[in-house]
Amino acid sequence: MNFAEQAAELHRLEAVALSLSLSDDQYEAILRDVDATSKALPDDTPAWRLAEIRRRIPEAAR
């Protein structure tokens, strides 16, 4: 996945978050938390980060 594809996926995930009534602040908190968590991983990848964001959005919307 190249940078443009990653950016497009982040925009799609933001749209999903907003459609589930998450605020911009809630979505950004997910991004910050995933970023902090991934830095502690030995094999941090953009794919892992996107998957983790995708997983956390529905949890935050509950």
Results as ranks from 00 to 15, higher is better:
M1D: 15
N2L: 08
N2T: 07
F3S: 14
A4V: 12
A4E: 15
E5M: 15
E5G: 15
E5F: 10
Q6K: 08
A7K: 09
A8S: 11
E9Y: 13
H11R: 15
H11S: 09
R12L: 15
R12M: 13
L13E: 00
E14F: 00
E14W: 11
A15D: 09
A15V: 14
A17I: 06
A17F: 00
A17R: 02
S19V: 07
S19C: 08
L20A: 06
L20D: 10
S21G: 08
S21K: 01
S23A: 01
D24R: 13
D25Y: 12
Q26F: 06
Q26M: 12
Q26D: 14
Q26P: 10
Q26L: 03
Y27K: 04
Y27Q: 01
E28D: 05
A29R: 03
I30Y: 01
L31D: 04
L31E: 03
R32N: 14
V34N: 02
V34L: 05
V34S: 02
V34Y: 04
D35G: 15
A36K: 08
A36F: 10
A36G: 06
T37P: 12
K39Q: 04
A40E: 15
A40W: 11
L41S: 11
P42L: 05
P42Q: 07
T45G: 00
T45S: 04
T45W: 02
T45C: 05
P46I: 06
P46T: 05
W48H: 04
W48Y: 09
W48R: 07
R49G: 03
R49A: 04
A51Q: 13
A51L: 12
E52S: 11
E52K: 05
I53G: 02
I53E: 02
R54I: 07
R55S: 09
R55D: 07
R55Q: 14
R55K: 14
R55E: 13
R55G: 13
R56K: 05
R56L: 08
R56T: 10
P58E: 04
P58V: 10
P58N: 00
P58A: 07
P58W: 05
E59T: 14
A60L: 04
A60G: 09
A61T: 06
A61Y: 05
R62C: 12
